[in-house]
Design a binder for these strands. Structure first.
Lengths: 190, 190
DNA sequence: CTAGTTAGTGATTGAGTACTAACTTTCTCG
DNA sequence: CGAGAAAGTTAGTACTCAATCACTAACTAG
């Protein structure tokens, strides 16, 4: 048994939670599954986080932040066409190497909707804030054209959807997408 | 108590299942919640469907089909710019009047990913087939330009995402979208 | 060494859940 | 009417899951 500081453990929990929640969603994921992946007893999660929802929220926000960071860093110092290419490339690489982050994003969107419907606006507010940070980064990188920004983000959402639905890279549905998008492959079982 | 034919009941179950699964996903929705909404005892669902998964699949596929039908009918006899406008308008009206169908679509995408990861390709195959039918309708309506088709679908996915995340219609994130998209409002608790 | 703090576990509980089996009610039609 | 089929119910099983409680093991400062 490896002892860690609470802060380090929380990090491990967040990473494990992303892969678990990504695959089976909030309700489909048991806290025991997360604990097993971390290598810790299930009750101990409740020392590190106040409850299951808090774990999900932490995983969600981390994911949003990861995407923002990757896109931001990829386009640093670039402008226009070059920036677009770099950002698209970076995003596709992220979700190719970490498909769980793609699914976690989609789980997040849906869960925001559910949370809002139940009167919890805090989670949604945080997610929207993270999204707008990403939006603004793309926006300035693209020369502050709202239409182009929207189209760029839209293609990102389409990539997410097609990958989630399991369209293989060679499928004709990928025609008409940024050519980089095609490298995106199948989701793996983990 | 109103007696119905099994076929009629199945229809009611599908409608109820869409609203329930849309909000809380596959695992978050109990068969009892669906039965309550239908106005029937919970075990009776298992006479009408072989199991919970079958109910979800029926709800998913119905939703995909609804979208396809609405888009197809809206663009009938139109071409190019006119068809685009009509389809966008029809889609936005559909998800404004039936927000549950928007969420159910997103639940479907995620659940396909989960099903594929567990070795069930049947469900995914059916969903992809439905999606391609929609794709092809849009494709021919838009004059068979793959880039435009992809961009159109992409904007649809972005609308889904923004609505799910709860961005209000007046939010600046809607700038740069088709103007029709803006009418889309908040999801309601039902 | 000792006292106190931090990291972690095992046992349990109470609520919920998908699904089955056996039974009852209502409709239909010769 | 009477009988079979179709529509529906009640009761129950076997199981899972988030969260709590009371406890132990390991580290650390004086």
């Amino acid at each position: 048994m490896v002892r860690m500081s609470a802060e380090e453990r929380r990090e491990s929990v967040i990473r494990a939670a992303i892969t678990e929640f990504a695959q089976r969603g909030y309700y489909g994921t048991s806290t025991e599954a997360i604990a097993k992946r971390v290598g810790v007893s299930q009750p101990y999660l409740f020392r590190l986080f106040p409850g299951k929802k808090a774990i999900f929220a932490a995983a969600s926000l981390r994911c949003v932040e990861d995407v923002r960071r990757v896109v931001e860093e990829s386009s640093k110092g670039l402008e226009g066409e070059e920036a677009v290419h770099a950002m698209a490339d970076a995003y596709v690489r992220l979700i190719t190497e970490h498909p769980e982050k793609l699914l976690m994003q989609m789980q997040t969107y849906i869960t925001v909707a559910a949370a809002e419907a139940e009167g919890d606006h805090e989670f949604g507010e945080a997610v929207r804030k993270g999204w707008m940070r990403l939006w603004d980064i793309v926006h300035v990188s693209m020369g502050a054209d709202v239409n182009e920004t929207a189209t760029f983000m839209a293609h990102g959402m389409l990539i997410n959807t097609l990958v989630a639905m399991g369209f293989p890279p060679e499928h004709r549905v990928w025609e008409g997408m940024y050519p980089e998008a095609r490298v995106t492959g199948r989701l793996e079982k983990s």
